[in-house]
Amino acid sequence: MSKETISQIKAHLQTIKNLDDPYLQLLVNDSRKGVQTAIDQLKRRLARQQEAYAAFKKRFKYEEYYWQNGCQYVAGMDEVGRGPLAGPVVTCAVILNADFDLIGVTDSKQLSRNEREKLYLKIINEAVEVSIAVNDRAAIDKLNIYAATQDAMIRAVNQLHHRPDHLIVDAVPLALDIPQTTLIKGDQKSISVAAASIVAKEYRDHLMRDYDYVYPGYGFAQNMGYGTKEHLAGLEKLGACPIHRHSFSPVQKYLN
């Protein structure tokens, strides 16, 4: 039996990264219930980490395929903000390399605000390049939301200093002379699309929180412009503000 206290053992177990660690083998015959519970917790933690890593590698399969077939730069693309009644649509292109190791990068909708904020900064730091393009309310009303999204995506690509050899795009084909793979729910299938979705969402969420100070009463900091009960109540009381999309229902009936 180890002479360490259970608290000391728990602290040590937090540093262990695999079940073959010699320290863990010394604890196998420790009969204290607290020690055995800590070992079980360690095993579950390592199993979750292995599952997360396997899922991460699976989301890298498209990028790895194109790298292996002669593409140096593969850009993942996503958008945020097609559905809201107010605010811009934000698009993002992200180019990663094979050293990218942020296992937590996945569909932005599956992450908490705190997780997204941390990953946003790390993605910006680790990516080969990140490009963001925005179309505001006026452009959305002029072009329609689908065309405005395509337009912003194309600008995001054209702003890149590294010309992509291939694009992986979440559901929106683009009129560009670059080979493309269009994926449904691409942010769940491609790591670079997932990274783009996180960056685009964080960028747009920060914009909407700023707009909440400029145009209070609609709950933009919470609903990000989507048609929640609070938002609709604000429209009923205050009418439409300058960032409301005139072409979207039910905004039209609140225009002055």
Rank of each mutant, 00 (worst) to 15 (best):
V94S: 01
F56Q: 09
S7F: 03
P22H: 09
K43I: 14
P22Y: 10
G104M: 02
G70M: 13
D101R: 04
V105I: 07
L27A: 07
Y65R: 03
A11Q: 08
Q8K: 05
Q68A: 14
K61N: 12
K58D: 01
G83Q: 08
I9W: 01
R48W: 04
N69P: 12
S7T: 12
G104R: 10
L13T: 10
M77Y: 02
S108P: 00
E117W: 10
P22R: 12
Y73N: 10
A98T: 15
Y66I: 11
S7A: 15
Q50Y: 03
S108M: 10
N97V: 11
T37V: 14
F60Q: 14
K118H: 13
A93N: 11
R32H: 06
K57G: 01
P22F: 07
D99V: 01
G87R: 05
K10W: 00
G104L: 04
P22M: 11
R45V: 11
Y53Q: 10
Q36R: 09
L46H: 00
L85C: 04
R59V: 00
K57T: 04
R113Q: 14
E51D: 02
F100N: 02
L121G: 01
L119C: 04
G34I: 08
Q50H: 08
G34V: 11
K57H: 04
K122E: 14
I103K: 05
D78C: 02
Y62G: 00
N114G: 08
C92G: 07
P88C: 04
C92H: 08
A98D: 13
Y62H: 12
P22Q: 11
K109P: 12
Y66H: 11
V89Y: 05
Y23R: 08
G76K: 05
L102C: 08
V105L: 03
G87M: 01
A98R: 15
A98S: 15
R44G: 00
G34A: 09
G104K: 11
A47W: 03
Q36Y: 04
F60N: 05
M77T: 02
L85P: 05
Q41N: 15
R59L: 02
R59P: 00
L26I: 01
S31V: 08
A47C: 01
Y120V: 00
A55E: 07
W67R: 12
A86Q: 10
A11Y: 01
T15E: 14
Q50C: 02
S108R: 10
C71N: 04
G70C: 10
V90I: 15
T15K: 15
F100Q: 00
L102R: 03
I103V: 14
P84D: 08
D30N: 08
D99S: 14
Q68S: 14
I95K: 08
E117C: 07
A93S: 12
Q36H: 03
K17C: 10
D78Y: 05
L13W: 06
C71Y: 07
G70I: 14
T91H: 06
V89W: 01
T106R: 01
G70H: 13
G70W: 14
E64V: 14
V89P: 02
L13V: 06
Q68K: 15
K61L: 09
R82S: 02
A52M: 09
V105Y: 01
L96H: 04
F56S: 06
T15I: 06
A75P: 06
V74Y: 02
A98Y: 03
D107H: 07
V28Q: 14
K61V: 13
Q14D: 12
K58C: 01
P22C: 09
V89G: 05
V90L: 00
N69S: 13
L111M: 12
L27K: 07
L119V: 06
V28T: 11
F56Y: 12
